[in-house]
Every structure is written in structure tokens, then in C-alpha cells.
């Protein structure tokens, strides 16, 4: 079976090898599933996501997206994914629509589809009226919605989101979760990191828990419950406190 995301024995160190941010992790994500990537602060979630998206180089191991090696075939791999980072750093001086046109240009969104898709998401997230304003004037949540719109324009097979619900109002959170479901229903995959365990519990088909750079548990919520017989929160707390690995 073709995997949408495959991480094999990947490691990443900082400070000239002194700090191991990600330590020999392996993970597989299948097409059509919503995969939640959980872990406490500083566990290595963002570093892993940045390696998947080609922002950080990989020290050792391989990552493939939609069958493409992110290091050897970076353009094809990047074409296969849409990324929503945890920070909202954007070109402040551009207008929202200019940013989206730029994204549509670089992801080769066909001219006849561009307007339709841009309008769809701008209207869905209720930021169409602000699209002609500079991004500098946007609130935190509006920037998040703009980045989400940009990430979905080319309808990526793999949608990666790093802490996507931070800063969104309840209505936008609901819309985003709905869109994540819809995206998967169209045969695509969602991979997202979160701190909010209830969201993971309700939304994810499978979750992976990372702690101190190591994957300590992977499986469906039910599978994890079987091994721990508790809520996801207590599983999470117990695992990240003990550091034992659960093979579900």
C-alpha cells in the first residue's frame, strides 16, 4: 500500500550535535486518514514537521511524501503538501490577495480554478472583505485563516498543520475541523500537531505521541486505550512522564 507520509529513522540535532531534537523516529501515515501528532512542549513536533516540509534539513534517515523523497525530490514532495505553520510570519506589506496569488503562482494553480478556490476559502473563513488590505492590518486569527487558504489552494494530497487551532475563534475552529474532515473525505490526508487532546480524541483516526525526540506511542485512540485503559489525557500524561513505548 502506498503511504502518504513515511518517516524512517530520522534524526535531527542542534547546537553541533549537543541537543538531540529528534532521535531516530519512524512513522507511517496512510492516505485518507487524519493523523494527530501529540507531545509536550519541546518534544520535537515542530522540528519533525519542519523536516517533512523541507524547511529544516534532515541529519539522518529519510522522509517521503506521496512517494517522493523530500531531500532528493523536493519540488514533487512540496507539490504534494500544503503547510500551515505554528507561527504566523507572513509578508506584512503584501495584501492578502497578493499573497494568495503568489501561492497560486508557485503551486501552479490553473488560472480558471484560481479565482474559484480563492473565493471559496476567503468566503468560508469570512475574510474576503479584508483580502484587499495589507496583511499587517490582520489579526492573529485572520493571518491564520489566510495561511490555511493558501495551503489549500492547490488541493494538496497531504495537508500538514502545526498547532492549527491556536488563535482561532470557536466558529473558525469548527470550520477548520470540518474542512479537515472534508479534505480526507476527498481521499487526501491530514497530519497535524496539537496540544488539545480532546480535539485529537474526536478528530483523529490515529495519533502518534512524541516525547524528548522519540516516538513513544502510535495507534488509534482505541488501541492506545487498550494498552493503558484510560482517557487520552491520562495516557498522554503517563507516557510523557514515563517515556515507555507502546506498540499498538
Amino acid at each position: 500500500m502506498r503511504l502518504m507520509l513515511s518517516i524512517r529513522n530520522v534524526s535531527k540535532t542542534y547546537s553541533k550535535g549537543k541537543v538531540k531534537a529528534v532521535d531516530n523516529i519512524s512513522l507511517e501515515v496512510r492516505p485518507g486518514e487524519i493523523f494527530g501528532f501529540l507531545g509536550p512542549n519541546g518534544a520535537g513536533k515542530t522540528t519533525t514537521i519542519k523536516m517533512i516540509t523541507g524547511i529544516l534539513p534532515i541529519d539522518s534517515g529519510t522522509i517521503t511524501v506521496n512517494g517522493y523523497d523530500v531531500e532528493k525530490e523536493p519540488i514533487q514532495a512540496k507539490m504534494s503538501m500544503g503547510y500551515v505553520p505554528d507561527s504566523h510570519d507572513l509578508y506584512d506589506r503584501l495584501k492578502g490577495i497578493e499573497y494568495l496569488n503568489f501561492i497560486a503562482d508557485v503551486y501552479n494553480v490553473p488560472a480558471d480554478e484560481r479565482k474559484k478556490r480563492i473565493d471559496k476559502y476567503l468566503e468560508m473563513f469570512e475574510i474576503k472583505d479584508a483580502a484587499g488590505d495589507p496583511i499587517k492590518s490582520y489579526s492573529h486569527g485572520m493571518k491564520q485563516k489566510l495561511i490555511i487558504t493558501g495551503a489549500l489552494l492547490h488541493q494538496p494530497p497531504l495537508w500538514i498543520l502545526d498547532e492549527p487551532l491556536t488563535g482561532l475563534d470557536p466558529k473558525s475552529s469548527h470550520l477548520l475541523k470540518e474542512e479537515m474532515h472534508q479534505h480526507c473525505a476527498r481521499g487526501n490526508t491530514v497530519f497535524f500537531s496539537t496540544h488539545i487532546l480532546e480535539v485529537a480524541e474526536r478528530l483523529c483516526d490515529r495519533v502518534g505521541i512524541i516525547n524528548k525526540g522519540k516516538i513513544i506511542a502510535v495507534g488509534t485512540i482505541e488501541e492506545l486505550r487498550k494498552s493503558e485503559d484510560a482517557s487520552l489525557e491520562s495516557i498522554f500524561l503517563s507516557l510523557t512522564g514515563e517515556g515507555d513505548v507502546i506498540h499498538a
Partner: peptide, 26 residues
């Protein structure tokens, strides 16, 4: 923030030109 509705443009360009344009605009 602008208080009037602006007509949005959806013009496309090549990769290099998109980067060129963004550089100039910023």
C-alpha cells in the same frame, strides 16, 4: 484597514516572475 470593497485581482505569473514581483512590492 480599508472600509470599502476592493476589486480583487487574480492575475497569474511564472515562478521567477512571482518572486520578482513579491520582491519589488515588499
Amino acid at each position: 484597514r480599508g472600509n470599502r470593497k476592493v476589486k480583487l485581482s487574480y492575475k497569474s505569473s511564472s515562478h521567477a516572475m512571482a518572486i520578482f514581483r513579491i520582491e519589488w512590492l515588499i
